Computed example of a mutant assay.
Amino acid sequence: MAKTPWAARTAREGRDSETRSLLLDCAARVFGRIGYARTTIADITREAEVSRAAFYIYFASKADVFAAVAVRVRDAFLAAHELPGVNADDPYELARESSAAFLRACTDNLELMTVIEHQALADPAVHPIWREIRERPMHRTSRYIERLTVQGRARPAAPPHVIAEATYGIFTQFAHYVAANPSEYDETVKHLTAMYLRLLGIPESSGH
């Protein structure tokens, strides 16, 4: 039986999405490995095993695909604060799960973070994406600490924005350790969660 036009279009769109995702995956690896300046479109298409013509179906230039990679990194960091199925009213569960997700995002994008930061200095299109990667997670953390404080559920050791910036820096630093020692990921999450709760002034709970 011949495919309906709708089914054929859906299948084609699925293939297009897969090819675009493949190019983004490969571009991310190449940019992370050799940096922005040294990367060429030929490097990306060779990594993806697709033609140069196929690349231009989805991206207009190296700058275009790099911006798309940077947006995907930003989205990974923001997703660490949007955890479906996690009880947002339980500060212990939320701290544990968000710590795990944020550390994973830092570790998975460790090399790219450096490249994006450097490119943001020269490229006005990348600069706002880099600012979002850094600032939006910290703003969310700061607002969360403020809410807990108002509710009387936290006694933070410092102003919320200071704790938010400090924990961001701690997690990005520990990402280097986890990248070199992947088997230590779970234990590192445990320690970072405990540190974060201490900074918030939330007492330890035997039930967690």
Rank of each mutant, 00 (worst) to 15 (best):
M1I: 11
T4D: 11
P5C: 00
A7F: 09
A7C: 09
A8V: 11
E13I: 10
G14N: 12
G14Y: 06
S17I: 07
E18S: 15
S21T: 15
S21K: 14
D25Y: 10
C26I: 08
C26P: 04
A27S: 11
A27F: 06
A28F: 01
R29I: 09
G32P: 02
G35Q: 05
T39G: 03
T39N: 08
T40D: 07
I41N: 06
A42M: 11
T45N: 07
T45E: 01
R46I: 08
R46W: 05
A48K: 07
A48F: 02
F55C: 06
I57L: 15
I57N: 12
A60I: 04
S61H: 02
S61T: 04
A63P: 00
A63Q: 06
D64S: 00
D64K: 00
V65A: 01
V69W: 00
V69P: 01
V71H: 08
V71A: 09
R72P: 08
A76P: 04
A76N: 07
F77K: 01
H81S: 11
P84G: 04
P84E: 03
G85A: 07
A88C: 10
D90L: 02
E93F: 08
L94N: 02
R96P: 03
E97S: 10
A100K: 06
A100Q: 04
L103N: 03
A105C: 01
A105T: 04
T107L: 02
N109E: 01
L112D: 00
M113K: 05
I116H: 00
E117R: 14
H118G: 13
H118S: 12
L121K: 15
L121F: 12
A122T: 14
V126S: 02
H127G: 09
P128N: 07
I129W: 03
I129D: 00
W130V: 04
W130Y: 14
R131S: 15
I133Q: 03
R134M: 14
E135R: 12
R136D: 11
P137F: 02
M138F: 09
M138N: 14
H139M: 14
H139F: 10
S142K: 09
S142Q: 13
R143F: 10
R143Q: 14
E146C: 12
L148M: 11
T149L: 12
Q151D: 14
Q151I: 05
A154G: 09
A154P: 08
R155C: 12
R155L: 12
P156L: 08
P156S: 10
P160V: 05
P160W: 06
V162F: 08
V162M: 10
A164T: 06
T167D: 09
G169N: 13
G169F: 03
I170V: 13
I170S: 04
F171H: 13
F171T: 13
T172P: 06
T172F: 12
Q173H: 13
A175P: 02
A180T: 11
A180Y: 09
A180C: 13
N181L: 13
P182F: 09
S183D: 15
D186W: 08
K190M: 15
H191Y: 14
L192C: 08
L192R: 02
A194L: 12
R198C: 15
R198L: 15
L199P: 02
L199I: 04
L200M: 10
G201I: 00
I202A: 06
G207M: 07
H208D: 09
H208P: 01
